[in-house]
Design a protein around this nucleic acid. Structure first.
Lengths: 217, 217, 217, 217
DNA sequence: CATGAATGAGTCTTCATTCAT
DNA sequence: TATGAATGAAGACTCATTCAT
């Protein structure tokens, strides 16, 4: 037993039922320990959520920042960034979903810090898009809406992707980069020879993928 | 006092905190009545959620179906459908968010019926896309992913749109149709002279829009 | 059911077992209600204690202040004050014991306010003794120790007095005034014709006297 | 580490917060050991309390009995007894407070034995007083009340005395003997040449005196 | 139409204690 | 001698719901 195992159990339940609807006893049962024992690994139910969210957001920021460092060209940066986003989201589906949904479950003591991480991550997208528009690499009527649509779309992968489904994650990454290019009217030949399909890191908090139903069905 | 008022109060809280984290006393307080009085309007807390979700999904299906009846051409149908989706979502932000998020809060007694409505709605998109691809109106590598991305993107409007923000809802509808066309490589001149910006209906359950911060900022 | 009844039940248990050792379920049981119902009358377990202590200390201050107004002579004032102290303590034994013992059970949020009331009450004794020594009415080697001994002695009545015992409360009041006079070397003839045996008020929080064993045995 | 150290830590906390409000982990922390280690020195939390109380009461009985053996005259015996009582109480303040307050915390398995020790100790006072009245050495309207007041007064020393305060313990002993003499109308010249200020023994369980604020202020 | 009072089952968390190491 | 991990029972408190008024 260790914190990772507890996080995995928590993510499974939080993703399925939501933080508020998940009892501490449920968490214990899912982790295979008594609910009291859980407090040896975790300060409180909320601390557990915070540790999950922080790890997730930190990795997203780290991976996203790295993506931007891969090139100076906005179009290439965008491809890496979207690929990273989709990759991480697809690999850590449940964790990503929890990190997205449960911001509201945080108390005032913890929400600001987590929101700041989220904002930092979103800023990476804003940054790339703004520069791309400025240098004429992207074409769009509204930068902000493009960014929001792009991110929401990618985050949605957490909802439907299945590890054992029809599509491999690499294909999804590829396809989402294509969509991003179409939305921003970028010529995709710019990507020829660039291997932007970044391999995402699996978080400690992500449970072993449970194959529920075929993906992309 | 009537059911609508109660639904509005409920939607406000469910959207902000989630169903599970919202107490029956909170609902009463938000509606300006005693929590016991609430039971004159509603059978149970879950019934209240069900009534909200059902009304929302029904209106989405109704409006979506109507959109499809506006034309026989897939491209036109898609424009109407996306416009309807974004319009309803932007007009009934909180209700839409609740309908999306809280499916998991339903008991086994109610979830199947609601899920069926949701499936029925999604089928409208599948239908249009499939026919469009079949007749060569749309171009995409993967129909399913396109549909998922499209819907997620549109649903995302519930998260960020602000009634009093920089953008009018009509502009958002317009822009999202454009994005859909780009994603599916449709020539947007096909829309010349077509007024696809459908005026969405405001649901009884949608609270008066609280203007928090500027939208799409 | 009302707050008084709940306070009585609480005082019974707090006096017998202590605040910390008394469970909320015990309180409910003693009051004849479900433990959850208890929260209709009381904000929290600590609030309950605070309300008991405050009422008690306020009455002690009120009665003690009144005692001082009965005369300008320190010796007479002392008699009234001791009589009031012993009378209240004997009439509200359990409440007085709780007010004395459980100061430490209060959180930092409530302790200062209660301690202030206690200090205010003790100041009445200090005041009388100091003036008495100054005008030569009292004789003692150490004013402070005399006050402490006097108060402790009187408070002790809460520990052993029995409503149905050998001694009537008036006798106890009389005797303690005598002891005070002896300790301070006051000629008790000064009290001839003065009826200093004040009738104490029974607090709402004081349970009906349970006759456990004969008093002063 | 030894039992004494553990007792000291326990007395510190029991005196400050009460037995019931003190956790076994707090005890460990205060003693500088893990809470599990504590069980190497002590059978249970209650056993720890019992050992403290027993040592304290035994020493009080021993010292009190010795006081009585110092003379055959009740007045002298009383002086020695009060001096012993005040001395022990002032030297072992916290331990004495715990021994006094926490009788109620004991289970039925242990309370009778401790109560018996307490009764035995109180009997020393009763014995002296009764004989003193019988032989005409003491004058009082009520023997029992005199005894209760005397003891309560002396026990009160535990509440206010400070090792580093204005008064030395010997002065307090002296003063309390004086008060006892006054209460019982004994001529204090009887004590001329008698050194009744007994030096009290410091119990193993008594923590090093923490000088909080000036005493007898 | 409305509500204060009531409750059993539930919440998260802490408890004293045990035991393998 | 010492402890981290473990747990069943209990802690205070909140829950959704009912009902007499």
């Amino acid at each position: 037993m260790n914190l990772g195992k507890v996080q995995q159990a928590a993510v499974s339940l939080f993703a399925a039922r939501g933080f508020a609807a998940t009892g501490i006893r449920d968490l214990g049962a899912a982790a295979g320990i008594n609910s009291a024992t859980l407090y040896h690994y975790v300060g409180s139910k909320e601390d557990l959520l915070v540790s999950i969210m922080r790890d997730c957001l930190n990795e997203m920021i780290r991976s996203g920042s790295e993506a931007l460092r891969g090139s100076a060209e906005p179009a290439i940066q965008l491809a890496f960034l979207v690929s990273s986003h989709v990759g991480l989201t697809g690999t850590n589906q449940l964790t990503a979903r929890v990190a997205e949904y449960e911001m509201r479950a945080l108390s005032e003591a913890n929400r600001p810090a987590m929101q700041e991480l989220r904002d930092e991550y979103e800023a990476l997208f804003t940054q790339v898009l703004e520069r791309g528009v400025r240098v004429g690499a992207f074409n769009t009527d509204d930068l902000t809406m493009a960014r929001l649509a792009l991110m929401e779309m990618g985050t949605g992968v957490a909802h439907w992707f299945r590890q054992d489904g029809r599509l491999r994650l690499e294909e999804v990454q590829q396809y989402f980069v294509n969509m991003a290019y179409r939305i921003l009217a970028v010529d995709s030949t710019a990507l020829d020879g660039v291997d932007f399909v970044v391999a995402p890191r699996r978080l400690d908090s992500e449970p072993d993928p449970v194959q529920v139903r075929a993906n992309a069905s």
